[in-house]
């Protein structure tokens, strides 16, 4: 994006903002135009204890293996931004309460994190989020319990990130042709998506 385009969009965005657009959208649009990653913006919602636990949790869900893991992709930062800016107030309340319960449980050394997360999944196994046919897309399930919120944002924050899309999935923004019958080799990763909701 060249400077002229940037100035044009800034003018457009600021004009919209002056009318009454939520300031959030303006900030996001500017980031988008500047060409920086979404996660390269300040956020200060969580305490250091909450952050520490979140970091451990996302790495438990998607660990570094022979490919990068959730922390390599700064998934914790993506989630903090989403909890601060994407979630509705009721969703945020659910998330923060869930996070605090985990912080306390780990503090009291009740059990290790993977056991705690597994227990949470069992407790909420009837949640609609797990039902057949549900998928992680552009929307968000407002009824999702904390554990499902956490998994969804971890997965999106990982596979849509630069690290996840280019180093774990295959990323090809300019294929140049379409072939609907290529041979699928074993262990071949999926293509990265343009948006979480893309069907293919």
């Amino acid at each position: 994006m060249n400077r002229r385009q940037f100035m044009q969009l800034s003018a457009l965005v600021l004009a919209g903002g002056a009318v009454s657009g939520p300031s959030l959208a303006v900030d996001q649009q500017q980031l988008f135009v500047l060409g920086r990653s979404f996660i390269e913006q300040p956020v200060d919602l969580f305490s250091s204890a909450q952050r520490k636990l979140l970091q451990a949790a996302v790495e438990t869900i998607i660990p570094r293996t022979d490919t990068p893991g959730a922390l390599d992709a700064s998934v914790d930062r993506f989630i903090e931004l989403c909890v601060a800016q994407f979630m509705t107030e009721p969703e945020r309340t659910v998330f923060i309460a869930g996070l605090d319960e985990l912080v306390n449980a780990v503090d009291q050394q009740q059990s290790d994190l993977i056991t705690l997360l597994t227990e949470l999944e069992e407790q909420h196994s009837d949640a609609a989020w797990y039902q057949l046919g549900n998928r992680v897309g552009n929307g968000f399930d407002s009824s999702a319990p904390f554990i499902c919120q956490l998994k969804e944002l971890t997965v999106v924050g990982f596979f849509m990130s630069e690290v996840g899309a280019t180093q774990v999935l295959r990323h090809n923004p300019m294929p140049g042709q379409f072939d609907g019958e290529t041979v699928l080799a074993s262990d071949q990763p999926s293509w990265a998506r343009n948006t979480p909701g893309d069907l293919s």
């Binding site: 994006m1 002229r4 385009q5 044009q8 969009l9 657009g21 939520p22 959030l24 959208a25 996001q28 649009q29 980031l31 988008f32 135009v33 060409g35 920086r36 990653s37 979404f38 996660i39 993506f78 931004l81 989403c82 800016q85 994407f86 509705t88 552009n138 929307g139 968000f140 999106v156 924050g157 849509m160 990130s161 630069e162 899309a165 923004p173 300019m174 990265a192 998506r193 343009n194 948006t195 979480p196 909701g197």
Partner: peptide, 26 residues
């Protein structure tokens, strides 16, 4: 010139492309 979102990478989109629900609601 004005296709600002053309070929923009997923990680540059707000919330990595998840819907901006509050903005859309309003």
């Amino acid at each position: 010139e004005d296709y600002h979102g053309e070929h923009v990478s997923s990680w540059k989109l707000p919330f990595y492309g998840k819907e901006q629900r509050q903005l859309n609601d309003q």
